[in-house]
Each structure stands twice: as structure tokens, then as C-alpha cells.
């Protein structure tokens, strides 16, 4: 297992080099003068500034040398400076990323807690009213446009009923907890600021629920399908023939087997959420990576775009690795295959 994980981590290096290479080349291929883009027209008119900038980023060298210089900077944690925010990209990413991770993570937690029981129930009661109802719900969840749900949710639960707080990660009156992870819920718990914790959690609920309509819909269907594949398996009858109750058979023998493919989907959905929450982040004024990416794209903020691409690449790869590790934890057959180097 350790061999496997280290081998996979080793494989991350060429993947990341590939990602940076492609984004770097694409950004240079686009006909915008990086000097103008980075410094603005005013500074670009000033030859000394341009010369200094060109020297710093090696813009007079060949593309390959430029790339190597970029990589050297990257290695020291220098992702360049954002043209739009005028702050180092690395710093920007560190402040925006946790907000998105918190939102996506909470959404996934919520979805799993909703979908696994629903999916199991629908599969066990296949063809009954319960099954029909669950499938209808998931269909609605998957089909409903997120932006509409977000608007309707805000209108109803915030403006009219006032049972959830408004947009943002915290109420304006509260200070963020001392930064450890950047996730407000966890940091506030670590600092024992219960009030802040409650407030951060309350702010998470509505956007997460709305995101979860889609993810939970997908996961419920997946759980149901996967359960349906497991239910006719011989080993369930073996369990019954040993004297196991129906509940025990489903929970101890069927469910663990059915969850194996669901884990993959959870990983994929989590990756999608991290990169695809722009809409919700905008509507809920959530200072996350989605909004940062959106703004970077609008302003042709190349250092930021490359930085974001890199972060997404790393995140996807790590999530995938995580999924594979969990997979192996759940399924001994995969462990055997890994040990034999077949995966």
C-alpha cells in the first residue's frame, strides 16, 4: 500500500509538469503582450520598467528558457503577481481556496448522508412507491438549474422567512477565527469560538443544500444502481442461510460492497464541485476560488490563471489518489491487484 501511494505521488510530478507546460505555452500563444497585461498600458509605455520586467521573467529568452525560469520561480512558491489584485497569486490562492474547500466539503458530507440511505432504501424497495418517490426526487434534484434554486432559496429562506443568514461566509459583525486551516468551521472549533462556529455553519447550510440537490441526486442514483447490482449476489443468500436478519444482511454484507463504486463518484463529484461552484459563489458572495477564477479570466490575468490551473490540477490528482486509496481500503481484491502492480 505504501509502495503504491508513493508510486502514485511520484507520478504526480510529471502530471504537474505537463499541466504547467501546457498552460504556460497556451498563455504565451495568446496574442496579448504579457508586459502590457501584467503592468498595464501606462507602465508599459515606460521603457525602463518594461526592460526590468522582461529581465525578471526572462521574456527576452526563448520560450523554453522562459518556461524554465517560470518553473524555478514556481519551485520557490512564487507564482507571480496577479494583474488584477496586485497581490502574489500564491497568497490569493491561499485565501480563496479554503472557502471553496469548506463549501464543497460540506456539500459532499451532506450529500452522502442524504443519498446513501435513500439509495439503499430505493434499491431494497425496488419497484414500490418508495423507489418511485426517491427516483422522482433525484430526477428533480439533477434537473433543477442551480442558479434558479439559489435565487429561490435566498428569496424564501433568507428574505421572507429569515431562517438562514444571508450571503457571505460570516456575519459582517464577526471576525474570522485565527487562521489554521482557513476553514472557518474548523478554525473556530480549534479556537473554541462557539458563536463563530455556529455562524459559519449557518452560512454554509443554504448554499450547500442547493449544491447538494444536484450532487445528492447523482449519488442517490449511483447508490441505488450499485445496490441493485449487489442485491442478487450469492453471498447475501449465504448470509441469510447463516441466520442473519434482513437488516444485518443489507447493512453488513450488501452495503459495504455497494459503496465501493460510489466512492469513485464521490471523488469525481468533489472534484467537480471544487472547480464548478462559480455560480453559487457569485450568488452567495462566497469568496472562493470559483470567483477568483472568473475574475482572472475576465481580466486576462495570466499569472492567476496559470496558478488556478495548477491548483485545480493538483486538487484533481490528489482527489483521484484519495479515491484510489479508499477504494483499496474497501476492496481487498484491488489491494491484491495493486500488490501485483496491475493497477
Amino acid at each position: 500500500m505504501i509502495t503504491y501511494v508513493s508510486r502514485r505521488l511520484g507520478l504526480l510530478v510529471p502530471i504537474l509538469v505537463g499541466i504547467t507546460f501546457i498552460t504556460f505555452m497556451v498563455s504565451r500563444a495568446i496574442p496579448t503582450d504579457p508586459v502590457v497585461a501584467a503592468l498595464g498600458q501606462q507602465a508599459a509605455d515606460h521603457p525602463n520598467i518594461v526592460a526590468a520586467y522582461r529581465a525578471q521573467w526572462g521574456l527576452n529568452e526563448s520560450l523554453l528558457i522562459q518556461y524554465l525560469i517560470y518553473m524555478k520561480n514556481l519551485f520557490h512558491g512564487n507564482l507571480g503577481q496577479s494583474i488584477y489584485t496586485h497581490r502574489p497569486v500564491a497568497e490569493d490562492l491561499l485565501s480563496y481556496m479554503p472557502a471553496t474547500i469548506e463549501l464543497a466539503g460540506f456539500t459532499i458530507l451532506l450529500s452522502v448522508f442524504i443519498s446513501v440511505p435513500l439509495g439503499v432504501l430505493a434499491a431494497v424497495k425496488r419497484g414500490t412507491v418508495v423507489d418511485l418517490l426517491v427516483r422522482l426526487l433525484t430526477l428533480i434534484g439533477v434537473a433543477m438549474p442551480i442558479f434558479w434554486l439559489a435565487l429561490a432559496g435566498l428569496e424564501l429562506f433568507y428574505f421572507h422567512m429569515g431562517i438562514v443568514p444571508g450571503p457571505g461566509r460570516l456575519s459582517p459583525l464577526l471576525n474570522p477565527p485565527p487562521r489554521v486551516t482557513g476553514l472557518f468551521t474548523i478554525d473556530s472549533l480549534l479556537a473554541r469560538q462557539w458563536g463563530t462556529f455556529n455562524n459559519a455553519l449557518a452560512h454554509l447550510i443554504l448554499p450547500s443544500l442547493i449544491l447538494a440537490t444536484w450532487t445528492a441526486g447523482t449519488l442517490t442514483r449511483m447508490t441505488r444502481t450499485s445496490m441493485l447490482a449487489v442485491l442478487p449476489q450469492g453471498y447475501l443468500n449465504t448470509a441469510r442461510s447463516k441466520g442473519a436478519s434482513e437488516l444485518y444482511t443489507i447493512l453488513r454484507h450488501a452495503l459495504p460492497n455497494a459503496l465501493i463504486p460510489v466512492v469513485t463518484i464521490v471523488g469525481l463529484v468533489f472534484g467537480d464541485l471544487l472547480t464548478g461552484v462559480i455560480l453559487i459563489e457569485t450568488l452567495f458572495s462566497w469568496p472562493g476560488i470559483g470567483r477568483y477564477a472568473y475574475e482572472a479570466a475576465i481580466y486576462a490575468d495570466f499569472p492567476a490563471i496559470i496558478g488556478i490551473t495548477l491548483v485545480f490540477g493538483v486538487t484533481y490528482s490528489l482527489v483521484n489518489l484519495g479515491v484510489d486509496v479508499v477504494y483499496a481500503r474497501l476492496d481487498p481484491r484491488i489491494r491484491t491487484a495493486m500488490a501485483l502492480g496491475r493497477r
Binding site: 453471498y235 448470509a239 441466520g243 481484491r333
Partner: peptide
């Protein structure tokens, strides 16, 4: 399992793989 036990054909399918 206590009074009557079953042994079935396909032992691979009849054992929980995990």
C-alpha cells in the same frame, strides 16, 4: 445456520469478497 445449513455451488460468488 443452526439447524439447517446450505453449501452452494459457486464458492466465489457465495463468499463476501470484502
Amino acid at each position: 445456520g443452526k439447524e439447517i445449513s446450505l453449501v452452494v455451488q459457486d464458492s466465489l460468488a457465495s463468499l463476501n469478497p470484502i
